[in-house]
Each structure stands twice: as C-alpha cells, then as structure tokens.
Amino acid sequence: MNTKALKLAAVAATMLEGFSPTEWIPLPSLGLGIRVLLDDGQQQLVATAQTSLDRSADTGSAAEAARIYDAMYPHAGFTWPHLRAITEVEADYFGTSAPITVTLIEPLPGAPVSDQAIADVARASSLAQALATLHSAAPESISEAGFPVEDPSRFQFQILERLDQAAATGRVPADLLQHWEEEFEQVSLWRFLATPIHGAIDETSVYTDQERVLALSGIERLRVSDPAIDLAAASALIDPAAVPTFFSEYRNSRPRADEHVITRAELLAEFAVLDWLLEAVDSGDEEAIQDAGELLSSFNDVLFAKDTAEPSAAPPGPADADNDDATPGAVVLSEESESEPDAGLAAESENVIDEDTEPDETEPTDGIHRP
C-alpha cells in the first residue's frame, strides 16, 4: 500500500470542518510532492503534501494570490486554485528533513499539458488569450498586497549580469554571446510598463481540455514584471509550428501591448538554454555543464548557419527537478467554492497513479483506498 498517500489522507481528513472523506485516490505529483483526491460523497478536494515545492515560494501566498485573481479577473475564461485549508506537519511524519506544508484545494478542471506539446491552433490561441487577460489588469492591487514589483531596467540589468556570468564559463560561442549582448542592450527593447504576470508558466501549471485552457495553477508566483516572461515560458509548451499563431493571437487579444513584447519573449526563450548552463555551473554538475555547452553550440550553428534561414523558435530548455520535505492544527481559509469540483474530479481521475510507493509495499488492485 502507498503509505505516504495514506498518511496524507489521514491528515487531510482533520483539516476542514464538515469534510469527512470516505475515499481517496493517489494523483500524479506534478512536481509538488504527494497528492491525493479525497471524496466525502458530497464534495471532492485535492490534498497535497508539498515535499517537492520550491521553498522560495510561500505557500500561504497562494491564498492571497487567489483572492487577487478573484478581484482582478471576475470574468476570466479560466479558473485557478482556491485554497480551502492549510496546515503544517512535523518532518518525521513523512520522513523528510523539514516540516511539510499540507494544503486542501478544489480540483481544477482539465489536465496539465505535461510533456505533450500544444500543436493545435485552438489551444495555442486559448493560452494566448488567457495570458493577454492576465497582463491587461491594473497592477496596483498586486503591489499593495506585497507581491514583487520588478522594474524593467532592473530586469534588463539582471539579464546582462547573467550574460556576463555565462561568458566567464567559456562555454558560450562568441557569435551567440555577441548576438545576445547586442539584442539585450537595446534601450528601446525595455521601454514598456510592467504588468501583472503569472510568473510560473510550465507544463504542470497549464490545464486544458481538447480545445482550450481551463485553469492555471502555480499562481503564488504572481508579480508585476515583464509580460514577455510568461510568453517565453508558454512558447516552450507549444509546437514550433503553432508558435506564430500563439504570438499573433496574443497581439490581437492585447492590442495595447508594447511593440517589443514578442521580440523580448523570443529572446528570453533563447536565453533559457543559457540559464540551464548557469544552473549547472552553480550545482557543479559536470555532465549538465557539458550538455548545456553542446546545446549552446548547436543553437549557435543553427542560428548563424550561412545557408539556412533563422529558426522561428529557440531550442527547448531543461525541465525543473523535484525535491522532497510535514500535525494537524489546520487553519481554514475559505468555505466558498468558485470552481466546479465535479469537472475537476473527472479530470484529476483521468490521470490517477500511485506515487512514492515503497519497494516492499503492495498496491491494491481496485485503485480506491479507504482510510
């Protein structure tokens, strides 16, 4: 039996008054940790023991981010996580090195895009429309709530600083280095107003059905910054053939966007490979350093090939790695639901798996577990 998931279900059963689950189903990790879908016969909630969550993200800020999203985007064509309860459990409960945060949220509709590139025009356009909606809101409520506000000139400085660090490794081809230096040093490129951005678009945070984007998770990274950050991250999820449609739809959906936003997004998409190199250098991973260097060389050859046209999309960057980290005393944050649990249950159930299974344990055959 999956004992970690069973332990999570036991904790979750104590977190919300009036919620007494009778069934639970293990769910994919999505890079967060241990996840289970709980059902008490009247409602379903997703419990997560965040053993793999990036510690630089404040879990509690997800609740505040959801409140800001509710206020800024009351008519959005997509939804986001609504936190119902949160608690912390001691490290020894899950055998981790530090206490673990456990959350209860309403299930999201659809399913994460995962590693399947968005190749169809409909979903690429829907993602562009969702980001255009996010970027069109006024930023004041975000800054007033204490979320980060990044000045365009400061962001440019950080990019050029990373470029200097990468140059010092000797792994960046000279032509590619010069290309980035010339592009990112353009003053006109950085004349724009920072906007609200999602800040964590990836294959686990974009939920879709077969036709459109239904939900965005990872909203605790909300901040005021360059909208090109979201566009660059989103373009990595889209098949290269559909990227022009994505950018075109974004332009059509947000006609007041600054004129250089797409150019910055394309440059930031290229820059993802260089960020991988710097991460590898920081970690001392020689194999990753070698791989990043070879990818930069290949990209340089393609970008500056004498007899071929410039590529329309940058090469993909590496995926983020997972981590690990956990007694009741839950704080109930909200009793109200604005999403549709039944749709979320169907979507979550489609991707059910058992995770964190220990080698000497036996999994039940019916897929439904009762604590």
Rank of each mutant, 00 (worst) to 15 (best):
P364F: 03
E350M: 04
P341E: 08
G33P: 09
D164F: 07
A119R: 13
V121R: 15
E355F: 04
P173K: 14
E185R: 01
A167C: 04
S97K: 13
A233W: 14
I86K: 13
W276G: 03
E203Y: 02
E249Y: 09
V331Y: 00
Q50I: 09
T14F: 08
E23A: 01
G77A: 06
N252W: 00
A305T: 09
D282R: 06
S298G: 02
L108V: 12
L6F: 13
E161T: 08
E90K: 09
A66W: 12
I68L: 15
S20A: 10
A137P: 07
H75W: 10
E350H: 03
V224N: 14
Q116D: 14
L176F: 08
Y250H: 13
V331L: 01
L222D: 07
D202W: 07
W24M: 03
T362L: 12
D70F: 05
P318H: 05
S298M: 02
T362C: 08
R171Y: 04
D70Y: 06
M15P: 03
A166I: 08
T96V: 03
P364R: 07
D325F: 10
I197G: 03
D120C: 11
F299H: 05
F246A: 09
V36M: 06
S235V: 12
P28H: 01
T22L: 12
A9K: 06
E182M: 10
T79G: 11
L193Q: 13
L163F: 02
Y93H: 01
S188R: 12
N2Q: 02
A57I: 15
S337A: 10
N323C: 06
D175L: 12
N323H: 05
L8W: 00
T245F: 15
A280Q: 08
M72W: 00
